[in-house]
Write a protein that binds this DNA or RNA. Sequence first.
DNA 1: TTGTATGCGTTATCAG
DNA 2: CTGATAACGCATACAA
Lengths: 342, 342
Amino acid sequence: MDARKRGKGATTLTDVAELAGVSLATASKAINGVSQVRAETRQKVLDAAAALSFTPNPFAKALNSATTGTIGMLTQDLDNRFVLPVLLGAEDAFGAGSTSVLLADARSDSIRENHQLNMLLAKRVDGLLVVGRTTNPRPSITAGLSIPVVYVYAPSEDPEDLSFTPDNHDAGRQAVEHLLSRGRRRIAFINGDPSYTAARDRVAGAAERMREEGLSLVGGTGLFGPWGERWGRRCTESLVESGERFDALLCGSDQLARGALDQLRESALSVPDDVAVMGFDNWDVLAEEARPPLTSVEMNLQQLGRSAAQQLVRAIGGTSARGVRLGSVRVVPRESTGSWTL
Amino acid sequence: MDARKRGKGATTLTDVAELAGVSLATASKAINGVSQVRAETRQKVLDAAAALSFTPNPFAKALNSATTGTIGMLTQDLDNRFVLPVLLGAEDAFGAGSTSVLLADARSDSIRENHQLNMLLAKRVDGLLVVGRTTNPRPSITAGLSIPVVYVYAPSEDPEDLSFTPDNHDAGRQAVEHLLSRGRRRIAFINGDPSYTAARDRVAGAAERMREEGLSLVGGTGLFGPWGERWGRRCTESLVESGERFDALLCGSDQLARGALDQLRESALSVPDDVAVMGFDNWDVLAEEARPPLTSVEMNLQQLGRSAAQQLVRAIGGTSARGVRLGSVRVVPRESTGSWTL
DNA sequence: TTGTATGCGTTATCAG
DNA sequence: CTGATAACGCATACAA
């Protein structure tokens, strides 16, 4: 690849035109495929461009084209395992086209977020992808901006904005559906921090599905606690000691589920024979190495990021949209909910 | 923030000059603090700029300044928990200045990497940060490039390049040092995949430190296996069954350590009373929720990313450097290696 | 100290 | 179909 050598004198369109023996204007048209150019001359230009490994200067281009071929990704907290897949999906979607991604992280600081926003704006990005840290709705930044903004993971509080967030409610429903299909009917829901909408939505969906079967969650819908294995263990222990019968533990996250699995083993309860266990997020490192491997709900965050990015591209193109789009999710069955087909 | 409104007619330097009642050139000089401008007029210009919330168009600027204020971050595999902290540190270092980060991911595909590289080059980035997926040396891409390149995490194979990678050898040494300080002398090293230099370096450092005390690793230096809890359990089980005495298990990763902890509990061995356990990477989610909380070696990846970014900025400024810089690491003590001060 | 004029690399608008 | 030429927004030698 000689194209790499762009030292002092990067080859310009003028060079190409000269080598091709045409005018600058013609060279431009030939390369951009716009306007009518004789096939023969176009080929001459293209050959010359290839020979010189010409790459158009994006700055010169951006100077009078209103669009810059760059979008900004404003993350609230990069140090978060949920934003990574989103980022990946977005990068993927953009990478396919010609737009590239300018990254800026706010470190969970709203002052800093504003700073980063202004920097992105100063760089003249064509659009903005705002990636939240949780699925809790977040303040809109769209007001006064002249470029399109799409919110991912954390939806905007303003319904006029366009947001993409995973369907936690349906995740709860599907999880219960899965457990029911395995013949479980006495299901408890060990949940995380109730200040997270994800926690509330998941249990709401689960409870709804149970109700449709004339059932209700063992222990109720209020088993909230800190996300993390510790609470998974403690809560499981309480359930066992309470003497209440249950044949499945649905846990608000894979971490909680790992704690539950641990505690069940200590209580000499067999998984999945005595109790089925499942989690949410399908965090491979935890789920696949669990004993037994853990059934979990895949939130499809990468797909979410990709969709958001594609929609942003469309919005930049002029097709705007609004509202909250719910990303689909699916159960990934593993051994922890095996057997018992009823 | 009115600065956000850059619609069709973003305010230009000409507007500022006009409002300030000076010429375009003077306005430029006043704002860039270059050349001699009367303090009074400068203030007039600055005021005008503020009033119009003027933001210089980076494209116009880049057109004739040889530098673009943008660096490219080329990651081999974004979907990797080790690159995230590196990315964070780099973003941090750049965010402090005025340069911003263009992200491109290669999806572990060398063809795609080349593609992304060319895209970054086409965008005229001032420098390149190449972030690897492992600490294994990787092919250099510096040849023929006219911009500085810094390698992070995975060092370049070419010693003429500048690379930043964590000091895994010292990590091994420090781990043993820590265990020795807790009075342990019969230490086994359960390791990960030997195709990773990280695995080999860590055990080499550990063995070296043991040798200095006239000791050697229980079970030798060859207890390699797949990274992951499963191997941690299996290997621990073998060690227990072998009847060999040991009072500490040093594990090549936190995942391995988690497996070891699990297995020890099943074998009715107490941690840390009977056996101390520690890991590497200090992955909070695993280490803090372990039973008991796991001592681990923090690899300081964020700092590594920050250093690399700073060095890249310097290189862009003209101060080049070469060689492999080893990032410092440190032990984070938790309960799993408590008590036993000897 | 300030202003004028020119160039950076492209695209777009006209004439030829 | 092709070629001058004027923008785009800013920096900068050079002139005043």
